[in-house]
Design a binder for these strands. Structure first.
Lengths: 195, 195
DNA sequence: GTCTATATGCTGATAGAC
DNA sequence: GTCTATCAGCATATAGAC
């Protein structure tokens, strides 16, 4: 193979991010030391700084990558025709996508206060962008008369909180699988916005 | 007055808990030092240990007090007659009670992973107890045929996540006051569980 | 690319003076 | 009841050898 002797840079970077994500999710950003992350990867602490400028950037990159991935995956969904179908698609997508990456979801919600102001604003912007995809569906359904909502903005936030809440109690191998959970939640979502 | 000279113990304890709650909510348990808490109260770090055995106990006491208060206030609510009225009462109570103490709610949700196993189990037990007050309402309504739910347990968790979510975006002086918000959420809750 | 060594400072908690 | 002083250890980040 053409790989140069001793060169591990192609995999060390991603492994640092994986280890950091897992540790941040388990113990929290402030409670995790750079030494812990280095130990999990199998390098010395000093080596981390070849891949990240500091601890704050490590956190920010994890959160931005998560939000970017969420937005890209959301945009890549096939476009359903009616507001009702689009809402069903959003509900299923949101639950399944979030259940597949619990650590990234957890860190992205819990560590917002550990971002510096600039980084916080960037993540908040991406989060609002995602919320607007749901709000657009609700507004369309409202205009067509298939939904009846007292307040579109509050309904958006209420539904997202409800759907993301699945991550707080879901455990693999539990009573219900992700597909079944998505169906049950869809039943409640559908009724909550019904005309 | 009969107060002894120099004795401030009657107020220092509560002030320590207030300062700790505020700082934990803003920066997170792991990121806050005992010296910071002491500074906020106006004493030296060593003096804190007259009122708490260690930092962990300080966190646990805050969370347990919050859950105890929540359960006591919930139990003290007047008992409505029908499942529908009880659900409406629960919805309003939950939103208003949580909006009044954002720091305690925030800490009680975000710092669970910083509790030691024993303390974690205690808080989890109280949380489940509170959830059961909602689940009992849903079960009664289901038995009477006024509600239709695909899954009582999931509906309980979904509704609580939705209601508690208000705390993540509510800001005083915003577009809507707590009463109006509670009304809007009640509309969605009512429909989500309707037969 | 990774290592060791190090600078500088903060951590939780305790002992003992007053 | 509060203070000062202190212990032993860990934090982030950098410098320079290999």
């Amino acid at each position: 193979m053409a790989r140069k002797t001793g060169s591990k840079s192609e995999i060390t970077g991603p492994r640092i991010r994986e280890a950091a994500l897992s540790l941040f999710a388990q113990q929290g950003y402030a409670a995790v030391s750079m030494r812990q992350i280095a130990r999990a990867v199998g390098v010395q602490a000093g080596a981390l700084y070849l891949y990240t400028s500091d601890k704050q950037s490590l956190l920010f990159d994890l959160m931005r990558d998560h939000m970017d991935g969420l937005l890209a995956a959301s945009a890549a969904e096939p476009k359903a025709a009616t507001p009702l179908d689009r809402l069903q698609q959003f509900t299923r997508f949101h639950i399944l996508y979030h259940l597949e990456r619990p650590d990234a979801v957890f860190v992205s919600y819990m560590e917002l206060r550990n971002l510096n102001p600039e980084n916080f604003a960037a993540i908040e912007g991406l989060r609002r962008q995602y919320e607007q995809t749901l709000e657009a569906i609700l507004k369309d359904g409202l205009a067509e008369g298939v939904f009846r909502l007292p307040d579109t903005k509050l309904a958006t936030l209420a539904l997202i909180a409800m759907l993301t809440g699945v991550n707080t109690w879901y455990r693999q191998g539990g009573r219900l699988g992700p597909d079944k959970i998505a169906s049950i939640y869809w039943d409640m979502v559908r009724k909550a916005v019904a005309a």
